[in-house]
């Protein structure tokens, strides 16, 4: 613990100072001009957008996380299986991780938008036209992009956590009579559960706080919290700054509300997955 102290101090100072400044801005204590005066005007003016933003943020983050966890676990299982397929999947995951979200979002837009590659390929089949996956009523493209990128992250985290001893665990289970499906369900899944949970939590918090993918692929209204905060911070109306700060504080609070209980539950995830007996 003492070895980690410098890192913890640096993180606390940077994050703490930033959060304090944003909170102070949101309640009028750090105005861009004029004297500081406590005020909830920023919160009041942004309240409807904040409520809608929470919903939109969760609408994006939750399915993206669930999808990333499922796909990531499957990819990790493939890699644990060994052979040439494992090498290909591992390389693919590393390549996906190296792609910035902004580039990924642009690619997904070119692939899934109305005039994108997929729409053009599907056109000869006819039908009612290409669904509005980009900028439509449901944040499909945003969710897919986040899930695509984060599944690679989840897969590599799970692989790192489970790979040591995996082959021997499977051999022991086989020696005890476990068939392949039983080995996956009764050994691999519970062994990987804590890593999947931890990686999913990181993914969820990232998806709640990420703005660029939703900004490029999402609909204009309602905006998820980070997009709202980004737009208001860039507004030519300087009085929007407290509202932007309020959106940022709400996004952070939302992430904390999800992360704190999840962090508390993670250590118990292992026993919860089996109840102590197979």
């Amino acid at each position: 613990m003492s070895g980690a102290a410098p890192g913890i101090v640096a993180i606390t100072v940077v994050a703490g100072t930033g959060m304090a400044a944003v909170v102070a801005t949101s309640v009028g204590l750090m105005p861009l001009y004029g004297k500081p005066a406590p005020s909830l005007d920023g919160w009041r003016s942004a309240a409807p957008d904040l409520v809608a933003g929470i919903g939109e943020s969760l609408l994006i983050a939750l399915p993206a996380t669930v999808l990333a966890a499922l796909v990531g676990f499957l990819l990790a299982a493939l890699m644990l299986g060994g052979g040439r397929a494992a090498s290909v999947v591992r390389l693919a995951c590393l390549a996906v991780l190296a792609v910035p979200h902004l580039v990924g979002a642009t690619s997904v837009s070119l692939l899934l938008s109305d005039g994108g590659v997929a729409a053009r390929l599907a056109a000869p089949a006819g039908g009612d036209g290409w669904p509005a996956l980009v900028g439509g009523p449901w944040p499909v493209a945003t969710v897919l992009e986040l899930a695509w990128k984060e599944s690679a992250f989840v897969a590599l985290v799970v692989l790192a956590a489970v790979a040591p001893g995996h082959r021997m665990r499977m051999q022991v289970a086989a020696g005890l009579g476990a068939r392949p499906v039983q080995r996956v369900l009764r050994v691999l899944v519970p062994t990987a559960a804590p890593a999947v949970g931890a990686a999913s939590l990181v993914t969820l918090v990232y998806a709640i706080g990420s703005y660029e993918v939703a900004w490029l692929l999402g609909r204009a209204v309602p905006e998820p919290l980070p997009v709202l905060a980004f737009r208001l911070f860039g507004s030519i109306e300087l009085t929007d700054r407290p509202a932007a700060a309020a959106a940022a504080v709400t996004g952070s609070a939302l992430a904390l509300c999800v992360a704190v209980p999840a962090l508390a539950a993670l250590p118990r995830l292992r026993s919860l997955s089996t109840g102590g007996a197979p």
Binding site: A173, V187, P190, T191, S271, S273, T274, G276, A277, P278
Partner: peptide, 12 residues
């Protein structure tokens, strides 16, 4: 199996 307690392992 670390996800199981002592009896859980033997009961596997």
């Amino acid at each position: 199996f670390e996800h199981l307690d002592v009896a859980g392992n033997v009961a596997f």
